[in-house]
């Protein structure tokens, strides 16, 4: 299959590969997918008191398009707010990477991973005794 230049670039030079401390209170972790389906994405965000994503990391087991989708997602996440991140749609990833129809599920997985990471961070935050105000 022919990959777009952007997919190849993210595959060869993935951005933000790595892990954040999943037990830290300001880190949200989303793990989506399943090995038997051929892709698993782990996406992590580190959020400051103002609800801004100051760091994002990923690790992905999957095809080149899955790796590229998650790498691109971390690029978009860094520097944005949690609220804005929650609005990211898989179709934006499809468009940016020119994914063919058989690879759309990779972008869906990336969107799911973003939502799961945000959800994890929100849960941790609401579990804290005195959460900062403003962006629950």
């Amino acid at each position: 299959m022919a990959y777009s230049d952007k997919v190849l670039d993210h595959y060869q030079n993935p951005r933000n590969v790595g892990s954040l401390d999943k037990n830290a209170p300001d880190v949200g972790t989303g793990i989506v997918g399943a090995p038997e389906c051929g892709d698993v994405m782990k996406l992590q965000i580190k959020v400051d008191d103002q609800g801004r994503i100051v760091d994002a990391k990923f690790k992905t087991y999957g095809c080149g398009s899955a790796i590229a989708s998650s790498s691109l997602a971390t690029e978009w996440l860094k520097g944005t707010t949690v609220d804005a991140a929650a609005q990211i749609k898989n179709t934006q990833i499809v468009e940016e990477l020119s994914l063919p129809p058989v690879k759309i599920h990779c972008s869906v997985l990336a969107e799911d991973a973003i939502k799961a990471a945000i959800e994890d961070w929100r849960k941790k935050r609401s579990a804290q005794a005195t959460p900062p105000e403003g962006h629950a």
Binding site: P14, V17, S19, I31, V32, G33, A34, P35, E36, C37, V40, M41, K42, F58, K59, T60, Y61, I67, H105, V108, L109, D112, A116
Partner: peptide, 23 residues
């Protein structure tokens, strides 16, 4: 080095016991 499965195995997690979210 960029596989979450490899990372889990290094942490001693049994992948067969993980509850995956099928999609």
């Amino acid at each position: 080095s960029m596989s979450p499965l490899w990372e889990m195995v290094q942490e001693g997690i049994d992948l067969t016991q993980v509850r995956w979210t099928a999609h």
